[in-house]
Design a protein around this nucleic acid. Structure first.
Lengths: 229, 229
DNA sequence: TCGCTGCGTGACCGCATGGTCACATTTGTG
DNA sequence: CACAAATGTGACCATGCGGTCACGCAGCGA
């Protein structure tokens, strides 16, 4: 019936779980995984707390799933960057830009910042290994870039920390309700952050915020001034 | 007696409160202000939870005090930068470097990352205003730098977000037990981060990590590989 | 030696929040 | 329509943690 135009039961379940993930990711990044209650997540979806447990085992699984998804996206984006980039710096740029864009599209949030004790046990180990592996890939790319002449001689570890800091921090100020598209934000922040490594830094940046009209809107949460975009 | 070589009662109280602040800042940055329990703080000081309440009104006051101190340090450092810097970019560099160094010296931790709902009410307002004011000062410096030719034409808002992200992220990977002095870390990270804005970026960076012998040491918390320094 | 003051502690209280359950309601199917 | 499966809910339980309190103890002046 309906010729498959309507998703069936299992597809709907998957969609609901995904919606929960999105909502949770949003709430977790705003309030921290500890500061957020499952009721917060439920309310933001317009359902009761108990309903969540049909699709999620417990809060820990939620946190883990968010983190896993973020890391998978980061990995995938970097793989794409390695395939398409002309040199190592270019690969990093593509990898980071796509990471941000994809994250916002998938989870509605630019990055998950995890507290040290948010996960426990074997799952935690696995996640940390994944994260470390990602950082290692990034460092290798920096070394490659120094070799191929696209990146200045620098300490890869510090350079990567600096890049990831800039990228992850986006979650503190980016608001999807704002006037900037995810693409614009991603390009702007990656462009300036990677300029720090560029062996031949461009004398001007392409992204100018002032060009964009920004109608006044009600302040979001505590953000009175214009701390956020 | 003892000719004032021994601090008196009130001085000791002040020292104890300061010690609590340091311990709390450490625990808060690691676990998030919500994820950290007052017992965690107490244990890290080798006292009981109840003892803390002789020196601190409640957990909220602790969070607030940490945040206030961090902001005061940032403000002070930036003021010094504005006084000593030769141009706007130089002022930013001095301001950020001193901020990191001072933070580590005072709180034993590079930066406090606050969740959105960690504070409430009037205190929150006040803190957020202070933080916004700091960001405004930074943005003004970026504009000054564009004017005086030390900084490339760029969007101040994005540039400052990028800088602050790099700086705050230090708290995720820096470990005071490591072999790097606070000064080395601060110089290294600020040098590369501000290179992103530099109108005439140096062709090489001064800081090279490899130069420093790093004896093996037990992994800290979950940090197996060398995610941290 | 006798208080007096201040400090630190274990035991305790109350509440918020993670998690469960029985039940009502809806949805899909023959 | 009948029935089963799935879904969502309010009420409830259990526990971890912020916060309090009565007590023991050390230091100190007379």
């Amino acid at each position: 019936m309906w010729n498959d135009a309507i998703p069936d039961r299992t597809a709907q379940q998957a969609m609901k779980r995904k919606a929960i993930l999105r909502a949770a990711a949003m709430v977790f990044t705003r309030q921290g995984s500890h500061g957020a209650t499952l009721e917060d997540v439920a309310i933001s979806l317009g359902v009761s707390k108990a309903a969540l447990y049909r699709y999620v085992l417990n809060k820990n699984e939620l946190v883990l799933a968010c983190q896993e998804e973020a890391l998978d996206i980061a990995d995938k984006a970097l793989t794409q960057g390695e395939k398409e980039g002309l040199n190592a710096l270019d690969k990093i740029r593509i990898g980071l830009t796509n990471y941000l864009i994809e994250m916002i599209a998938e989870l509605g949030v630019p990055a998950l910042i995890l507290e040290d004790n948010a996960l426990h046990g074997a799952e935690a180990e696995q996640t940390y290994e994944k994260r470390d592996a990602y950082e290692m890939r990034m460092r290798r790319l920096v070394r490659d870039g120094i070799a191929d002449g696209s990146i200045v001689a620098t300490e890869p570890k510090i350079a990567v920390f600096m890049l990831l800091g800039s990228i992850h921090w986006v979650s503190k100020w980016y608001r999807p309700e704002g006037n900037w598209t995810p693409e614009m934000v991603a390009h702007a922040i990656v462009e300036i952050a990677t300029r720090a490594l560029d062996a031949r830094p461009a004398p001007t940046l392409t992204t100018r915020l002032e060009d964009i009209a920004r109608p006044a809107q009600a302040p979001l949460s505590y953000l009175k001034e214009d701390h956020a975009l």
